[in-house]
């Protein structure tokens, strides 16, 4: 039997994805388009927050949406009804979006005439956390009914996000969700994260969120 040789490889597995993500980020920065990746569990309120964001910012900014959620055009239809363009990615049961998929979606968008693009990622707190989409900011939603223990169960997601939206705070009264403990757990994993408490139902806190987003978009063009 032939001798076994060892060949050094020393490569990061996701490097292809990373390279493409960096390229997307650079291209969009040059075109002054702000790309945000929005992640959350199914039903946490991704589509609701996107709709609220569109309502709050569409007079000042031209917004586009990439819908990545599992093969249903329901969310894309809700968004286009608000008068903004949406591209539906057919992920066919994929558990995450990666940079090549976002690249394909961007090819179908009129980038010269957009200021903000929001990605509604696949509903899942695990896999999307591992793939850089090329977004300038990673945002996640955690809704009150999901419980205050989620940072313990999904530490990676909480650690890679720049901003956390705690949605459905209208459910706080009468729930055992402890906001102080929750914040403490999150900040331990990620001391730099920005946290907004909102309700897409009552509109509470939405303005603070859209102001933050507008500030991020503005800082892109300075």
């Amino acid at each position: 039997m032939a001798d076994i040789r060892l060949i050094e490889v020393k490569e990061e597995i996701l490097s292809d994805n990373k390279t493409q993500a960096v390229q997307i980020r650079n291209d969009l920065r040059a075109k002054k388009v702000f790309l945000m990746n929005l992640m959350a569990s199914p039903g946490a309120g991704k589509t609701s927050l996107i709709l609220e964001t569109i309502r709050g910012l569409k007079d000042a900014y031209r917004i586009g949406i990439i819908e990545g959620d599992i093969d249903s055009i329901v969310d894309a239809e809700k968004v286009t009804r608000e008068g903004v363009p949406a591209v539906q990615l057919r992920t066919g049961g994929f558990c995450h979006l990666d940079a090549p998929m976002i690249g394909m979606a961007l090819d179908e968008m009129d980038l010269e005439n957009l200021d903000i693009i929001i990605i509604e990622n696949v509903g899942n707190l695990v896999c999307p956390a591992e793939f850089d989409t090329g977004a300038m900011r990673n945002a996640m939603i955690l809704s009150v009914p999901e419980g205050d223990d989620k940072p313990l169960k999904y530490p990676l997601m909480f650690s890679i996000c720049d901003v956390l939206v705690v949605n459905k705070i209208d459910y706080l009264a009468g729930s055992d969700f402890d906001m102080a403990i929750f914040r403490d757990r999150v900040l331990k994993l990620n001391p730099a994260i920005r946290i907004f408490e909102v309700s897409c139902r009552t509109g509470e806190g939405i303005e603070a969120w859209t102001e933050w987003l507008a500030g991020e978009v503005k800082s892109l063009s300075t």
């Binding site: 490889v9 020393k10 650690s159 001391p191």
Partner: peptide, 17 residues
Amino acid sequence: ITLIAGREYYIKNIEVV
């Protein structure tokens, strides 16, 4: 404190004939 490692995917080497 802040997280600095624990999420890498790294291919070290291959054993071949």
